[in-house]
Simulated scan of single mutants.
Amino acid sequence: MSLITRIVRSAADGDAAPPYASNRLLAALRPDALAALAPHLVLVDLPAEAVLFDAGDDVQHTYLPCGPTQVSLLVVTADGQEIETASIGLEGAIGGVVSAGFKPAYGRAVVRTPGHAFCIPTQKLEEVKTATPLIADMFDRYADVMIAQMMQLAACNALHPIEQRVGRWLLFAHDRAGDEPIRLTQETLAQMLGVQRTTISAVARTLQDAGVIDIGRGKVTIRDRAGLERRACECHDAVEAHFRRVLPKVET
């Protein structure tokens, strides 16, 4: 079942304008298109490790993460291992991106970095897309970007050494966190990348010794973005370049 956590602000609240600029898909919409979508958006809390939907669930809600909030799409193996196949943050949306109706989820969606997200019933989103072609086009383009990310990650996981893969993941997280530390444990990163925790610990020490990152308890601070980019593979840049081509009006 889809999880909606504590409501922070609904469309009926009049105390302050909802922070639509904190999700770049919403920020890129023309005022008339945003006006068609806004009455149905609710700002909610997404706590760390919350499961938004699981394999086989009917995806009843769509989430648009804000700020540093980050959600992982995972494939869960028969023996319970979780492998990340995509990561979604303030640049996108998760659940119901393409269509409504009973479309069972193939994998699990888990909140990795807690924060806020705008939430809309998937059926209502489908109605708005039908009535507003501009919104439908934007979500179709974003679906293309999601497929590209999954394809690139499949190649990355098969071909690139673990230090480069860690660098790629941290670059995506840094894009979303900005100057704030990335809330992440080494155990979680090991699970997502499908390696042992000791392997991640060794990579983290190497990066910290090189002055690229600073490791705290459950947090990672990027100290040298350029240095991290040099140590990462080309996968982050490849996905970002495709994003800019497909969604040129959305900042990444």
Rank of each mutant, 00 (worst) to 15 (best):
A100S: 14
G227I: 08
R6M: 08
K124L: 08
I94C: 03
G211V: 10
Q123N: 11
I182Y: 04
Q196L: 13
A117E: 02
T198D: 13
A158H: 11
H116G: 08
L207E: 01
L41W: 00
A131G: 12
Q164W: 07
A226N: 04
R205N: 12
V220T: 09
R24A: 09
V239D: 06
E49K: 12
A238R: 15
T5P: 05
V76D: 05
P18W: 07
S10W: 03
A155T: 11
P121A: 14
F243I: 01
I213K: 01
P31H: 03
A154K: 12
M1R: 11
S2N: 14
G14Q: 10
L125N: 03
V59W: 03
H236W: 15
I7S: 13
D54I: 04
A173W: 04
T122C: 06
P18I: 06
D144L: 15
Q196N: 13
E251H: 14
L52N: 02
L64Q: 02
L228S: 07
M146Y: 07
V59A: 03
S22K: 12
R108D: 04
E49H: 13
H174E: 09
A109P: 07
L34G: 02
A93D: 04
L170Y: 02
A28C: 04
P104L: 06
A50G: 01
P19K: 08
D57N: 10
I7T: 14
G216D: 07
